[in-house]
Write a protein that binds this DNA or RNA. Structure first.
Lengths: 343, 343
DNA sequence: CAAAATCGCGCAAGAACTTGCAACAATTCT
DNA sequence: AGAATTGTTGCAAGTTCTTGCGCGATTTTG
């Protein structure tokens, strides 16, 4: 490994001086020789010093928790597109089971000298998960934007859907349809957006004279199958309307309803959350609370780009109002349903 | 910018020698001093030489053409997970409109010294798109694996779903149900997998005494809306069964059928392709030809890892047999449908 | 067609970085 | 307590890389 520069020089048949000039973008080297040197550099596995790598690739880390729930690819598309338009290249980091951890990804991105990081989901959304690696980001002052949950004490700019409004709209919709026993199908117990929905739902319910007991709340993982299992428990508790924390959970709930020999929305109404792709094509078309991902994505880009260009942005949490999209999975509570009792 | 090392040394209050030792991970430096030097390095914006950036991040570029069609996130999940299990970090590259081109991404990955590249889709699947940047990959001998279409003359290992078998299964299924006027809703005219399906479908149709005329073939972009438009044309031609080149196209076709005042599958049968997520939850549940993405993904990983570790793998195209999944969007041709004539 | 200008390149001096060695301090052993 | 051991650091010599200068080749100009 010794005599690296000399070795390259010998390979191309030029002097060390010429190689050095190529490496430092100095003038006085013909294009032909320059290419020859660069080729030899690659052939010999010589790592080009950073200066030579064109202008620094302006990379931005983009964390998506998973790709199964279509809302995350959708966020990825919006944010990734916005980054590209601003001249940044998104490096998508998805947590795949058994693989690389979020902390590993953060180190990796720091090594790659990324210009910034966007988290659309990750450990920060779960209170009990390790949060230590986020401190690394503040340490080196890396521009960072979070989506849908803040991290206390680290002062990251955050862009969130207003979960309280979402819960309020959903509960109001169900209540107006005559539902009084409403179940909540949420994510894990320490998941911030789920907690926020829970708190808001309880408050709204109370103000409308309803109660949401413990057995009307189900925490599960964010998969269709887990949703089906959780919803089955809720049905046992006699609920006639289910508010779900994601669209896949809602699809699981619909499956659970059918498995119980009931129909949606005749016997049980189901509301999803996200309005991810194809939710108008499922059976029945899903009533759901839409996250305004386009404006949120634009805000994320704006905050990130501002930080990268050195501006000190307000490290507030910016809330975006969701929108209830009424389709076919909710309806008036039926007489039969009103009779149905907890088992 | 001169005297870089000396400058750092002065800042920390040690000799150049010590800084040099830290930079090269040499022993004989106390942990405290090491940290002090590293901090000063960051503070002064000194770019750490690559050696110091932990062990080289083993990156692998993963090209997905888009994220709207759920089959691509699904591929991403399988391949990304497999890479992680083998100690590689996937860098997902998705073509976002107006942003960075595929050629740019390739250059970027080369600069980042990736260990290999996987293409799940991209310009190589379209015969008329520029292919020049792929030659760069062979030039530097970067391990590369393609999915679902080969590139002539460059000798990349390729893993594909057998489009011929897919077309055969779909046509056979429709024919058995009594359909004789079968339409093809395909991707762009120069899209290799679509061409392969077209060729195979025509051959199978001929062997069964059917014909597929020009007006029974529709080429469009791969979006639900484009599919709807294309399918409308096919319905005008009087087809009773439509074979689509992707699931979103099939959903577009179903929408077109309904727009025409007809029903699926009573009046028109629709077959998708991919069996992407949620296709059993749409209305009606979609009959589709499943791409075996799990085994394909494993093969991709195997081929890539073998190449990275220096093995010379056969640059063949490996074909995987798809599987017809019969659900609710196909049914026997009705008397009314048989009467329906081209407009 | 020759003189002049320009360009590309190697030489060699010097700058930047690495490393063997010895000095010094802290700790452990006798 | 004193000696030995271990670990940390700076000095200075050795490598490796950068750059000013001039030579020769090629192109341009009168």
């Amino acid at each position: 490994m010794s005599q690296r520069l000399a070795e390259v020089a010998k390979k191309v048949g030029v002097s060390e001086a010429t190689v050095s000039r190529v490496l430092n973008e100095k003038p006085g080297v013909s294009e032909a020789t320059r290419q020859a040197v660069l080729t030899a550099l690659d052939v010999l596995g010589y790592e080009r010093p950073t200066k030579l790598r064109g202008e620094r690739a302006r990379l931005v880390g983009l964390f998506l928790p998973e790709l199964n729930n279509p809302i995350f690819p959708a966020f990825g598309e919006v944010v990734g597109g916005g980054l590209a338009q601003n001249g940044y290249t998104p490096v998508l980091c998805t947590q795949s089971a058994g693989g690389i951890t979020e902390a590993d990804y953060v180190e990796l991105l720091l090594q790659q000298q990324v210009s910034g990081v966007v988290f659309v989901g990750g450990q920060y959304t779960q209170q009990d998960a390790p949060h230590d690696h986020y401190a690394r980001l503040t340490e080196v002052g890396l521009p960072t934007v979070l989506v849908n949950a803040p991290i206390d004490g680290l002062g990251f700019a955050t862009v969130s859907t207003d979960d309280a409004v979402a819960a309020e709209q959903a509960i109001a919709h169900l209540h107006q349809l005559g539902h009084t026993r409403i179940g909540l199908l949420l994510g894990p117990r320490d998941h911030v957006p789920s907690l926020r929905k829970l708190t808001a739902a309880r408050a709204v319910a109370r103000s409308r004279g309803l109660t949401i007991d413990e057995d009307q709340i189900s925490h599960s993982l964010y998969s269709l199958e887990a949703g089906q299992a959780g919803a089955t428990r809720l049905l046992d508790a006699g609920v006639t309307g289910i508010l779900c924390a994601s669209d896949p959970l809602a699809l699981g709930a619909i499956r659970a309803v059918r498995r119980a020999g009931l129909e949606v929305p005749t016997d049980v109404s189901v509301i999803g959350f996200d309005d991810s792709a194809l939710m108008n094509a499922v059976d029945p078309p899903l009533t759901t609370v839409r996250q305004p991902i386009e404006p949120m994505g634009r805000m994320v880009i704006e905050l990130l780009v501002a930080q990268i260009s050195g501006a000190v942005v307000a490290n507030d949490e910016f809330f975006f109002e969701p929108e209830l999209v009424v389709r076919g999975s909710t309806g008036p509570v039926s007489a039969a349903a009103r009779e149905r009792k907890p088992t």
